[in-house]
C-alpha cells in the first residue's frame, strides 16, 4: 500500500501524520487519506478538488503532471510526498 507524507510546514496548521493509503492514482490515494483526515483536505486541494496553486506533489521523487485530475499513477509501494512550492510564500 502506498505511503503518504506531508511537508512539516502544514503541521503547524493541521495535523497530517504520515500514513499508508490505498489507491493506484494520486487522486485515489489522497481520497483515501482525506477520508480519515477530513480537516486536511482543504489545505492541499482547492474547492474543485485540484491541487492548490502553490502546492506540489511528488510520487517516488517525480513531480506529478496532472494537477487537476490527479490521475498520475502510484505504485503499490510508492511514496506520495505533498509539499509546498517555493512560490506562494
Amino acid at each position: 500500500m502506498p505511503h503518504v507524507r506531508f511537508t512539516d510546514n502544514i503541521q503547524r496548521h493541521v495535523e497530517c501524520p504520515p500514513a499508508q493509503a490505498d489507491g493506484d492514482t494520486v487522486r485515489a490515494v489522497l481520497d483515501a487519506y482525506f477520508a480519515a483526515n477530513v480537516a486536511a483536505r482543504g489545505y492541499v486541494l482547492d474547492d474543485q478538488g485540484a491541487l492548490r496553486k502553490h502546492m506540489v506533489i511528488f510520487v517516488d521523487g517525480r513531480q506529478i503532471t496532472d494537477r487537476i485530475g490527479l490521475t498520475d499513477s502510484v505504485p503499490q509501494d510508492g511514496l506520495v510526498e505533498v509539499i509546498q512550492a517555493l512560490s506562494g510564500g
Binding site: 502544514i10 496548521h13 482543504g42 489545505y43 474547492d47 478538488g49 492548490r52 509546498q84 512550492a85 510564500g89
Partner: peptide, 28 residues
C-alpha cells in the same frame, strides 16, 4: 495562507482562544 488557501477561525471567548471553523467553499 499562501500555500494552503483561505481559512476561517472563530473565537467565542473574546479572542482568548481560537478554533478553525468551516471555510466558505464554492460548489463543484
Amino acid at each position: 495562507h499562501g500555500h494552503f488557501g483561505c481559512k476561517l477561525h472563530r473565537s467565542r471567548d473574546s479572542g482568548a482562544t481560537w478554533q478553525e471553523c468551516a471555510t466558505p467553499a464554492y460548489p463543484q
